[in-house]
């Protein structure tokens, strides 16, 4: 129990509750269920992407191409829709595309041995460039999308839109996947101690590549949801969103050095940013504050992580041992 209270997730949940409490004291409307559901729905893309990013970070890598993958997959979804392809087929194609884009990153990291930051820095510009090549910079607007395509994420079931339900399903799957399956645990092992992972029969590079594929699939899923929800697709959608995703992970306590982090942490990290983003206009602070606030949150979070993770010096003295 005490270990749970001391845990990062509990602290973050507390921070979010305090934040909500402070806002509620002046603007009670913000904490009404419908409003909170809206915040959750609005944060769904960030939560989904943060889970993909988390898997990559667990394996000691980073995926800066998620937002570009999102934009490219979203655009392909919109274009396929324009050609009259049925929605299920669109979804399948786009998820396969996302997996393929993730595999490109993964193979470059695994087979060629290029550091992931360099690979994804390169692919993020390439993916966006490809959108431009496909469209010549043209937008796909709401009137060019079918109603079925646009309405799916907004369709409300049991009080929550489908987009929010997708996030719930992804969170559930990831909780089980990361705690209860051998593959899920192997991400922790590979990032926590790559050397030992080899002795356990794990292929470090292959596991990293799988992480990139997972991140790619989730980026593509979010790509469709994003394009359909905002009913527009163009080269620059979700520009810079990869940093929000990394920020959500860092705030959620996912160790950038790999091997440590939980689904709950990543989700709460995303929700923290989501609450701030949605609360700013309500409390009358200019949305231009958002960037600086999330930047500060990242720095505070990483400073906090480091304090927790710092190993105490060696304890040799008997007297010190008793006190420790």
């Amino acid at each position: 129990m005490t270990s749970f209270l001391k845990s990062r997730e509990a602290l973050l949940a507390l921070a979010i509750l305090v934040l909500l409490g402070v806002i509620a004291s002046r603007f009670p409307a913000f904490v009404e269920p419908a409003s909170l559901a809206n915040v959750f729905n609005d944060t769904a893309p960030l939560m989904i992407l943060a889970l993909g990013q988390m898997v990559v970070i667990l394996t000691k890598c980073i995926d800066l191409s998620v937002a570009a993958n999102l934009a490219l997959s979203g655009m392909v979804a919109a274009l396929l829709n324009g050609m009259g392809v049925p929605l299920p087929l669109i979804l399948l194609t786009v998820l396969a595309l996302g997996a393929a884009l993730g595999a490109v990153n993964g193979l470059l990291v695994w087979k060629v041995g290029i550091p992931s930051i360099v690979v994804t820095l390169g692919t993020m510009t390439i993916f966006r460039g490809v959108i431009f090549l496909m469209t010549d910079g043209a937008w796909v607007n709401a009137h060019q999308m079918s109603d079925a395509f646009k309405s799916l994420p907004r369709h409300v079931i049991l009080g929550l839109p489908v987009m929010a339900w997708v996030a719930v399903v992804v969170i559930t799957i990831f909780t089980v996947f990361l705690t209860r399956t051998p593959l899920g645990r192997s991400f922790y092992a590979v990032g926590g101690n790559p050397h030992a992972a080899v002795y356990t029969g794990l292929d470090v590079g292959r596991t990293q590549a799988i992480a990139f594929v997972i991140s790619g699939i989730l980026a593509a899923l979010t790509g469709y949801l994003w394009v359909a929800r905002y009913a527009v697709a163009y080269v620059d959608i979700a520009g810079g969103f990869e940093l929000d995703v990394v920020a959500a992970c860092v705030i959620g306590g996912i160790a950038i050095a790999g091997g440590a982090g939980t689904v709950g942490g990543a989700v709460l990290g995303a929700l923290f940013l989501g609450v701030i983003k949605n609360a700013l206009p309500v409390v009358g602070i200019s949305p231009f504050w958002q960037l600086a606030i999330s930047g500060s949150a990242i720095i505070i979070a990483v400073a906090f992580n480091a304090r927790q993770g710092r190993k105490a010096g060696r304890i040799i003295l008997k007297s010190a041992e008793a006190g420790a």
Partner: peptide, 22 residues
């Protein structure tokens, strides 16, 4: 403080430009 530079500067990247936006 011994924090990893990649995370710190992703943070200050938002912070510095965020101040400009403010």
């Amino acid at each position: 403080l011994g924090l990893p530079s990649i995370v710190v500067t992703i943070g200050t990247m938002s912070l510095f430009r965020g101040v400009s936006y403010i």
